[in-house]
């Protein structure tokens, strides 16, 4: 799988672009097309490309590393949903506000974005777990 120089070069250029694209999609998601699901999938595509070129390398197989990623994402989403109950608000109450930062101007801070981050992490963890599980060579 790793004998194509053209593919390897193409991936070396494409991967950082994809990662950056994922970041942009995630940050823009609340106001433009994008969000946790899509950004997660784009990140997963970047991981897949690496897998196509480099194979599993010397990564130790059989470790549930990315299941921990899934768990972390689920935990983050759940905590975001639960946090308002500590303040006496109903489950899943989101809040948002705007702060002014130098250079960037008005930036929105939303607790929904934290929840979306959880979604993003779960999607990445899920796809990567599946990819590694199914492409392993025994």
């Amino acid at each position: 799988m790793n004998d194509s120089l053209i593919l390897a070069t193409a991936v070396r250029i494409t991967r950082p672009v994809l990662f950056l694209f994922a970041v942009v999609l995630f940050l823009k998601g609340h106001n433009a097309p994008g969000g946790g699901f899509i950004a997660g999938l784009v990140t997963a595509v970047a991981v897949l490309l690496g897998l196509l070129v480099h194979g599993h390398g010397n990564r130790k197989t059989g470790r549930p590393t990315f299941l921990y990623v899934v768990a972390a994402g689920l935990g983050l989403a759940l905590l975001t949903a639960l946090a308002p109950t500590l303040l006496g608000w109903p489950f899943f109450t989101h809040s948002f506000g705007f702060i002014d930062l130098p250079l960037l101007g008005s930036v929105e801070l939303a607790s929904a974005a934290l929840f979306d981050l959880g979604v993003y992490v779960v999607v990445v963890g899920n796809v990567v777990t599946v990819l590694y599980a199914l492409t392993e060579r025994r």
Binding site: G29, H30, N31, A32, P33, G34, G35, G36, F37, A77, L78, A81, F91, F92, H94, F96, E108, A110, A112, A113, F115, D116, V119
Partner: peptide, 20 residues
């Protein structure tokens, strides 16, 4: 909800429990 992308707002805010 402070978001302009209604689809994303539904996913993470209005119907957040479904998404969870």
């Amino acid at each position: 909800a402070g978001g302009h992308n209604v689809v994303n707002v539904i996913l993470v805010d209005f119907r957040g429990l479904d998404t969870l």
